[in-house]
Design a protein around this nucleic acid. Sequence first.
DNA 1: ATAGACCGTGACATTAATGTCAGAGTCAAT
DNA 2: ATTGACTCTGACATTAATGTCACGGTCTAT
Lengths: 148, 148
Amino acid sequence: MSRSIIKLRSTIRLKEGCALKIGELSKATGASIRSLRYYEKQGLIAPLRTESGYREYHKFAVEQVKTIRLYLNLGLSTEQIAGFLHCVLTNKEVFCNEILPVYQQKLKEIDEQIQTLVRIRSNLEERIQSIVSEQTDNESMEGTNDES
Amino acid sequence: MSRSIIKLRSTIRLKEGCALKIGELSKATGASIRSLRYYEKQGLIAPLRTESGYREYHKFAVEQVKTIRLYLNLGLSTEQIAGFLHCVLTNKEVFCNEILPVYQQKLKEIDEQIQTLVRIRSNLEERIQSIVSEQTDNESMEGTNDES
DNA sequence: ATAGACCGTGACATTAATGTCAGAGTCAAT
DNA sequence: ATTGACTCTGACATTAATGTCACGGTCTAT
C-alpha cells in the first residue's frame, strides 16, 4: 500500500530491451544516479551514449555496479577498484593477480585502524570506570551517613 | 647539532612573565598556531588580547590545551569537548557530570566502528584466503606435472 | 629606522563519496 | 503541442581539523 503515486516508466523499458538508462540502473542496483555518474568519472564503468546524449548501459552493468559497491563496502577506494576491476570483470576474482596486494594492503590498514580504536576504547573505559567508581564510593558513603 | 639557525625570541619571554603569545603556547603544547586559533573559535579557550590585538594566554593555558588535545585524541569533537571542558577545568574529570554520557556515547560509537571493521576484516580474509588457496592448488598441480 | 621574527585576519585547500540544485534538453503518451 | 517523467552538465555543499597563503601590522635588537 501507498506504493507510490508517481507514474514511472521504468518497468516498461526494463521488459523491452537490454539497454538501461541511468535511472533504471540506479533502481536495479541501489546506487544513486549521482553515484553512477561518479563511478563513470572515476573510470569504473563506461556506458554508451544515445544520439541525444543519454547514457546507455548494457544489462551486465547491473552486476558490474553491484560488484563496485561490494568493493566500496569493503573500504576500498574507487582508485583501488579501478586498478583491478577490469581484471575481475574479465576473469574471476581468484584469478586476478592485481587484487591480492590491494586486499592485503587494505587488511593491514584495517588492522591498524582496529588497533587504534581498541587503544582508544580501553582509554575510554578506564576513564568511565574511574568516574563511575568514584561516584559509587560517594554514594555508599552518603548511604552510610544518611540512609536507614 | 644543527639545532636551528633561525633566531628565536620565545625563550626570553618565557622566562619573563606568565603571559604567553600564541607561538610560545604552540611550542609548549605541540598544537599548531592554526589549531590554537581554531580552538578559540570553537569556544574551547579564550585568551585575552593586548592593546595591539595579540592573543595573551595565561600560563595555565598550556595544561588546558594539552587537555583539549587529549580529548581530541580520544576521538571527541571540539563540540563535545566544549560541552564539558569548563567543568573539567574547574573540577576534576571524575567530578564532572557532563563528561560521563559523552564518554559512554563515544564508547558506543567506537564499538560500532570496531564491529564494522571486524566484519570487513573477515570478509577480506576470506577473499584473500580463497585467492591464495586457489593459487596454491594450481602451483601444486603444476608441480605434479612438471617438477622432478 | 631597519631587519626580521612574530602576530593578526581572511580565504582557500585538503579528503571521498554523495546530496542537491539550477537550467536546459529529451522522450513518450495524450 | 503539451505535460510530466526523465536525462544532461556543472557547480556548490557536506565533514572536521588542519595546512597554507597573502597581505599587513607589531615588536625588539641593532
